[in-house]
Nucleic acid binder design. Sequence first.
DNA 1: TAACTATACTACTTTTTAGTAAGTTATTGC
DNA 2: GCAATAACTTACTAAAAAGTAGTATAGTTA
Lengths: 103, 103
Amino acid sequence: MSKVIDCPLNYTMNLIGTKWKPLILFHLLEGEVRSGILQKKIQGISNKMFTQTVRELEKDGLVLRKVFPVVPPKVEYCLSKRGKSLETVLRGLDAWGLEDLEV
Amino acid sequence: MSKVIDCPLNYTMNLIGTKWKPLILFHLLEGEVRSGILQKKIQGISNKMFTQTVRELEKDGLVLRKVFPVVPPKVEYCLSKRGKSLETVLRGLDAWGLEDLEV
DNA sequence: TAACTATACTACTTTTTAGTAAGTTATTGC
DNA sequence: GCAATAACTTACTAAAAAGTAGTATAGTTA
């Protein structure tokens, strides 16, 4: 069950190598957003996956979650310092896709 | 079934966002290798996943496969031009993991 | 002639990831 | 008192990814 880390790349992929994680992090590069707004930016994500993914990212210390005790609820997300450190990598992945699509 | 591409990052992840793909590509950065040797470098991969993954990478034009008609079989893999263009991204992911592990 | 070799394929099972649809909350505004 | 609101949460199902174990190949060596 334990995830063996044989190389750092493996570690990185275990952390963000899923369908939605990089996408959410990428959209958070623009800055703090309300939960509902962020979700609408992620085309095609289901409500369940959005909540689940964002919560995992929070658990892993990549995003910060701010809950405002109001009704109806208000929640905001933003990148943590650790999350921000992924910026280069995320933009790199995005840029590669753009390049590759053009060819 | 069709994979909707809402942003280039999504496209990239659909192409290489699985458990073993980045790892195999990363090890191929070192150059051409025989199948068996490559497989041994990928710690923990099963024979099935290795074959399956490498073949998908070939199908997607990221690696090249050279078959030598000898017995016992001899097969070599190397990165295609398109595969090589992932170098920066792959090294970026690896470097991030290294950094993050150290903190 | 039987074992050994390197590579791959197949059938089957388990695990992980993702999707659907419905329910929960507490306050505001009609 | 009932709908609308934003953000979940839960139970259930479906699909994708990964793992296990066994089989095929055809020359070479013991």
